[in-house]
């Protein structure tokens, strides 16, 4: 029994780390532009495909060469998808910056479909096997069977999140990004190049989300063009749960949602006497989304009273 629980804890940590990495992108973009970037889930998907291209191109052997190739691929994924994120902002959002808030959201929905379709046309709609970024060695831990892939995912995600936190909290560019998200006009008045700050956000957010995609594909061993839809929505839920706009909130929300989902799913057949099976796992995330929007739309770390946290509720 304890073995099963520990097993589930590890599963939840793995999924939670991935949700958190994607949720960060939603929350950072929202924090600066008050925009829900619906294409973010598809950038997550794109990350996995770019990594696949990297594996095919480099065709690494085993051992050290492989580790080096994996690191190179991770950097390339970050740069390529980060660049795509910046390009998307420049072409699809920036021209709409002074229009109605709904316009850029519709633009992002359109882009989401376009990106999925483009990948579907070039790579085919069928699932493709994905080689894990980390070696898969099964380990026995207190009766639970975990793999080095899971450990690799959690460690990599945590390192990236700590790096992001340090960047935002300590670096000068991080200070500027926070200033722009608090008051764009004043930041510009003080000489801040606002476009540059926004580009920074649209580089880091999609870059992290894309690495999340690589981790996700490493965990499940497959990918497909539509994989960003559900995972994107779940990570978005995690961001709302944590309080959209809050970086800490996105991370906490990602892990909380994963624990709720993993343990809920395990209990589902027991609770419903076998009537609902574990294939209904997705209901947990969306139940959570509905509950949060109903009872605490500002999320856990959002400011309950602030104007912007309530904007969501008013616009939809």
């Amino acid at each position: 029994m304890t073995g099963i629980i520990i097993q589930q804890i590890f599963n939840a940590l793995t999924i939670g780390a991935i949700y958190a990495m994607i949720a960060l992108g939603y929350t950072m973009v929202y924090g600066v532009l008050r925009l829900i970037n619906f294409v973010h889930g598809d950038l997550f998907m794109l990350g996995a495909y770019v990594a696949l291209a990297g594996f095919v191109l480099l065709a690494p052997g085993g051992g050290l060469v492989w580790a080096l190739a994996a690191a190179l691929i991770a950097i390339a994924v970050f740069m390529v998808v980060g660049g795509v994120g910046v390009a998307i902002e420049r072409t699809a959002y920036k021209p709409l910056r002074n229009s109605n808030r709904l316009a850029p959201m519709l633009s992002s929905l359109g882009l989401s479909l376009a990106l999925q379709t483009a990948v579907q046309i070039t790579m085919g709609p069928q699932p493709i096997a994905f080689q894990s970024l980390f070696p898969a060695i099964p380990l026995d831990f207190l009766g639970a069977r975990i793999t080095t892939v899971q450990i690799g995912i959690v460690v990599a995600a945590l390192l990236l999140m700590v790096g992001l936190k340090l960047f935002i909290a300590r670096s000068r560019l991080g200070v500027v990004v926070r200033a722009v998200s608090e008051n764009r006009r004043t930041a510009q008045l003080l000489g801040v190049d606002v476009d540059k700050a926004i580009s920074t956000i649209f580089f880091i957010g999609p870059g992290l989300g894309a690495l999340g995609g690589v981790l996700f594909a490493s965990y499940y061993g497959v990918m497909m063009p539509t994989m960003g839809i559900i995972i994107g929505l779940k990570a978005f839920t995690a961001a709302i749960l944590g309080g959209i706009g809050s970086i800490t909130g996105a991370v906490v929300g990602g892990f909380l949602l994963a624990f709720f989902e993993v343990f809920g799913t395990a209990m589902l057949p027991i609770l419903t006497n076998g009537w609902l099976g574990t294939e209904y796992r997705d209901i947990f995330a969306f139940l959570m989304l509905i509950l949060v929007l109903l009872f605490r739309p500002a999320g856990l770390f959002g400011e309950q009273t602030s104007e912007e946290s309530m904007v969501m509720k008013r616009d939809f």
Partner: peptide
């Protein structure tokens, strides 16, 4: 040309020193 705006417009969520940083970045 610096503009000290009406209502001060301090970044409330930043520290005092960070407020100074914003006005200096990229110069």
């Amino acid at each position: 040309l610096s503009h000290c705006p009406e209502g001060r417009q301090i970044f409330q969520r930043l520290t005092v020193e960070e407020n100074l940083v914003v006005a200096h970045v990229g110069r």
